[in-house]
Nucleic acid binder design. Structure first.
Lengths: 245, 245
DNA sequence: TCCCCTAAGCTGTATAGACAACCTTATACA
DNA sequence: TGTATAAGGTTGTCTATACAGCTTAGGGGA
């Protein structure tokens, strides 16, 4: 294969397969081209194709079965490994009714503080979301999210009347690294009003940056009224991390 | 290389290097044999040596520098897996001065709320500690800890003028499971006074139960003034877990 | 019809050889 | 002395080839 870019060949093969998975062309359980098919299609050696598929398997995207083939892994395995849960699922799992109100949704130019979070220049175009989540009608979370479309290919093409941006991100973008900061804050009056809490009541503020392939996909600040929500996690320090609701 | 076992060659090379690291023969920062040296020493091809070293690097054991060599990684990266750090180390790592004041230390009979945390009957004998941690003289954490001596053999025999109970627990009890609950609270006047914060100022409350062999070793509630402390963690969902201070 | 065997395709591993990029060190030159 | 250059070692990548073990599909024989 001719050298078309600086990145190594096996990486380009990985990107190619990954792109087909994330675009939905290769859905969960679907068969991925075999090593020899990749050799023919992309003009690389079999060792290079093997390395690409092997690493994608190691990263949890694929399942390989000797003598049979390579398949796209079911997503739930790699999705919510640590505390990455849809709040809607969390609420309904408790038997309560979840409802959400979109406060803001659309493209914005990054303010300095946001741009710094992404490590990008001020003014870069980001998708901004502000959603108020309610449990049985009572506000429990104010979600303030920015998404970098460059790191989440296909994001802009979604129809957000059918799927929430958060659901889409969870399902389609493979997050491989998370950074959390948790603080206790007293929210500004506007946010306190949205959350329907008394002035001076503390809130948990969870700031999270999600990385995929070394790039920041989305930065979110989740504001929880202290009286209505506590963060909870349980996991073992052994092989695989795991949390309980 | 002759086939001596069922495991693949690259795995045997990995095991060989790993064994030399874990035995202490190859300490942190030491140079690991180069790929060509491994080729000569173990009679494998360079591709096999390369795969072994590459995977050990991916797993966080080694550092590779193109044109220079391969080195054993400093252990701190893969050591304490998740958020279990001594606050004293954390503070001194920031270049600040840590001091601690023991508010309470001794055996107590468990009150109902505490007994429930341990899943033990009310009145069971537990060690109770209350310690105020300061950073450069300013209170940053109020530690309220109970220890079940039955699950932490040797705890009672320690001389706590020489080693803090927390240090001893970290070093001597293998914690294999953690449960965290994080809340935002406004502390009671007594605790607010200890922490030297204004009335009404929110605090982060981190409640943690540590399990060892299925038994609860210690239950701790850590109270952080919101204005002086934020919980922070960063980790990857891939192979090696990693946290930052 | 049923069963066995073979062939083809797949993954997994291993090797030898090659080139590029990078770093360090020694050497030659000004 | 100081600088530029060359050499050699190191990692990183890519290719072509080979063999083993596994699974499935299909064909031939009883």
């Amino acid at each position: 294969m001719m050298m078309a870019a600086a990145s190594p060949l096996y990486q380009r093969v990985k990107d190619h397969i990954l792109q087909r998975i994330q675009s939905g062309e290769l859905g969960p359980g679907k068969r991925v081209p075999s090593e020899n098919e990749i050799v023919g299609a992309l003009s690389v050696s079999r060792m290079t194709a093997n390395r690409a598929l092997r690493e994608l398997t190691e990263q949890g995207y694929l399942d390989r079965v000797p003598g049979v083939g390579t398949f796209v892994k079911e997503p739930q395995a790699r999705a919510s490994l640590m505390e990455l849960k849809n709040i809607a699922d969390e609420i309904t799992a408790r038997g309560a009714i979840h409802s959400a109100e979109i406060i803001e949704s659309g493209y914005v130019e990054a303010k300095p503080s946001v741009a710094e979070s992404f490590g990008k220049p001020v003014g870069v175009r980001l998708y901004h979301l502000q959603i108020l989540h309610r449990e049985n009608g009572l506000p429990v979370q104010l979600e303030d999210r920015y998404v970098d479309e460059a790191a989440a290919p296909g994001f802009g093409a979604q129809d957000f009347t059918k799927i929430t941006p958060t659901q889409w991100l969870l399902a389609c973008v493979p997050v491989d690294e998370l950074e959390h900061t948790v603080e206790a804050v007293v929210p500004k009056p506007r946010k306190a009003r949205l959350l329907e809490i008394d002035k001076g009541e503390p809130c948990l503020s969870l700031y999270r940056r999600s990385f995929s392939q070394g790039r920041i996909v989305t930065v979110v600040t989740l504001l929880y009224p202290a009286s209505r929500y506590a963060l909870h996690s349980r996991y073992s320090t052994s092989p695989q991390g795991r949390i309980s609701p």
